[in-house]
């Protein structure tokens, strides 16, 4: 059983997935950040692979990607950093990124390396369902990786069901049609989350985008299995002044405490 499935069997509520950018704030802080997240209570880690043109991300996460690229982060360097990360990090880890760098690295070679170092699944927002079904999905499955699709309030019920059937691990519910870090009224999305809940999907649902503190995390937990925090954590890291562990502990403490 995959680590992600195991997690959701053990825990169906208030599951916390935290996003961080590989190679940020320093090239070699990737592992330190992941360890700090695990030690401060994150149930899952979504590790972003920096890209020059990250369409689905807002300015805060893009700035962290630009910094990580300037620090020298590459996919090859990331896999070196992750070579023995499973010695210390036990929580499920997802790689999030964009198709272009992965195509350059080689899609199959990428999946092979991800599985070998102990990564559990992938979130690739610009890999569409059609291409996943016809070309890439078989490769993802061959290496035993979970694959997580996104749904939005604009996604039709029929399409939600289709994306649910293509996903494994969980389904990523974007809480408003917005790039990451958007600041929309959270109560406005509760209807949508309620609708997803009523659909009795095969995968657990995590809510991403717009979760930034204890109260938004709690609201998401009412209708979904948990939430994903990204922008707010990257901001906290930006302000960490080098103390990644302290900043992470303080940030997650405020949400989970």
């Amino acid at each position: 059983m995959s680590r992600i499935k195991e997690l959701f069997q053990r825990k169906q509520q208030q599951v916390l997935n935290v996003y961080c950018t590989a190679g940020f704030p320093e090239l070699n802080s990737t592992l330190t950040v992941m360890q700090a997240l695990q030690n401060s209570g994150a149930d899952l880690i979504e590790l972003g692979m920096p890209y020059s043109d990250p369409l689905a991300d807002g300015p805060v996460i893009q700035a962290s990607s630009t910094q990580a690229l300037a620090n020298g982060m590459t996919i090859a360097a990331l896999f070196q950093q992750l070579e023995s990360f499973r010695d210390t990090v036990k929580v499920p880890v997802l790689l999030m990124g964009y198709m272009n760098p992965i195509l350059q690295y080689g899609f199959e070679k990428f999946c092979e390396a991800a599985a070998r170092v102990g990564v559990d699944g992938l979130i690739l927002p610009d890999l569409p369902a059609y291409e996943f079904e016809t070309e890439y999905g078989a490769i993802v499955r061959k290496y035993g990786l979970d694959f997580i699709f996104l749904v939005t309030p604009e996604t039709s019920e029929e399409r939600v069901r289709k994306l649910d059937s293509l996903s494994s691990g969980f389904l990523y519910a974007v809480s408003s049609s917005s790039t990451t870090g958007g600041d929309k009224d959270f109560t406005a999305v509760e209807n949508y989350l309620h609708r997803l809940q009523q659909m009795k999907l095969q995968n657990p649902v995590l809510v991403g985008f717009g979760i930034k503190d204890k109260s938004t995390f709690a609201s998401a937990g009412k209708y979904a299995n948990g939430a994903i925090i990204g922008t707010a954590y990257i901001k906290a890291l930006e302000e960490s002044a080098g103390d990644v562990s302290g900043a992470t502990k303080q940030f997650l403490g405020a949400i989970l405490g």
């Binding site: 690229l69 272009n100 350059q104």
Partner: peptide
């Protein structure tokens, strides 16, 4: 350029060996 994905379609893209545009 080499085959890649930029601005929503697969085409030829000028990029680094690491896939940064």
């Amino acid at each position: 350029g080499t085959p890649g994905v930029l601005h929503g379609s697969k085409s030829l893209v000028m990029q680094t060996a690491d896939g940064q545009v």
